[in-house]
Design a protein around this nucleic acid. Sequence first.
RNA 1: GGUCGGGUGGCCGAGUGGCUAGGCAGAGGUCUGCAAAACCUUUUACAGCGGUUCGAAUCCGCUUCCGACCUCCA
Length: 487
Amino acid sequence: MDNQLVLYNTLTRKKEKFEPLHSPFVGMYVCGPTVYSDVHLGNCRTFVSFDLIFRYLQHLGYKVRYVRNITDAGHLEGDNDEGEDKFAKKAKLEKLEPMEIVQKYTLGFHEVLRLFNTLPPSIEPTATGHISEQIAMVQRIIEQGYAYVVNGTVYFDVEKYVKEYDYTILTNRKLEDMLNNTRELNGQDEKRGRLDFALWIKAKPEHIMRWPSPWGVGFPGWHIECSAMSSKYLGDQFDIHGGGMDLAATHHTNEIAQSQACNHTQPAKYWMHTNMLTVNGARMSKSAGNGFLPHELFSGNHPLLSRGYSPMAVRFFMLQAHYRSTLDFSNEALDAADKGFKRLMNAMALLPKLKATAKKAAFKVDELRQRCYAAMNDDFNSPVLIAELFEAVRIINSIHDGKLAVDEQSLADLKTLMQHFVHDILGLIDDNTGSDDFERLMEMIIALRNEAKLQKDYATSDRIREGLSAIGIQLKDSKEGTLWNKV
RNA sequence: GGUCGGGUGGCCGAGUGGCUAGGCAGAGGUCUGCAAAACCUUUUACAGCGGUUCGAAUCCGCUUCCGACCUCCA
């Protein structure tokens, strides 16, 4: 754990040395999806980014407890706690029970993240499974004097809170500005302050998802679930709290307020926020309707897409940008990433075939490894890491071509390096290989072609090559024999 | 309107004061029966203007354009 990892902390707006509260244990909480519709790609980017972080922390030897919630209750349409319940609305549309909606989209979410080769979190708690914890937390906030009850709904008292705590610590906004910019609430306003938000909401008669509470039948507010579940599984104070940047201003600001009011501690030491995925420069979002669904991207079945891209190519594409930068989506950019990814995977496939050729290698694996760690230690800079790995690709290809000397130890080190950084940390695997039968079939075809070549029957050998090319299989002749890969 | 973050070569995307990532695309070469792949070499940059400095893509100021948040979204 003696490493130089630094990460950007939204709380302080600068990079800080990573020092866990209770090393080697690390607690990390990431805000998960609200499962009332298909995950779109922007969501996936956030989860891929935190997967990279999770993987790297584990690689460094930390014992990470990664908690990522499933929001399956309490999230309302629109603002001001007066909108319709998202699950109830969707349930009506699809003529299903709200929990059927939850189940359907939770399964879909898991399937997509599996395709992206993200590791499952250590704990994946649901909001509906933690109603009593949320009620207890609301109760405690009331006891501490930071919340009030109006007609069965409990509101957080921001005005009281700001007297003792910094409400805008995460975004550095000025409170007056926020007050001036908050829209007037139309009609039946129960809140005392314009910035107050609901911790527990009284259920209207038609509301389906409802639970009894000390304040009557209702359901939890959107922000309280994360505070309740993070403190349950990670303690009142833990190391990393993450989520998309769009959550910082409202959701995370309110989470901090709730936890401070309840426990009088800042819940997380480091707050990490991932940037947005954009399409033609504009944020990909559910409401803008410019989002792709993952399966549309994989199949290419979308007006904005010229073809489909494999999940691993898309993961690679995402990791080629830093998690705090916006990433713009286009066919051109995806094509470029796809080719680069295949180049990397071809080198990975070549690696086991390499043999030591000399007593001393003509390159230094140690220096390369150090640069790889330096990249990741600098706030998980995967694009720089990938640039270093392409140096390794060049080395691997040159060894294979017989143009670069390598000794046993360097070769072994190179293999370990690639295994660690490509597979374990970046989480990239070749998703385009064939089955064993397919491999044997290709061996046979290549043998037939080589026989034809030996007999200078180029008409036949070219026919085989072109025929394979037409079905997307590329042959690569070299001194070591003929290799193939899917294009 | 307020707050914040950006504008890097044909495209994507790193890089915070000098040693000018990387991928894709383009050009030339080596290899090859030819090709592909691979390898080598190579062309296009730091929005504009001014300032600080021996030296700035990198720091400061102004201008301009774009985006995010402030309202559900990762």
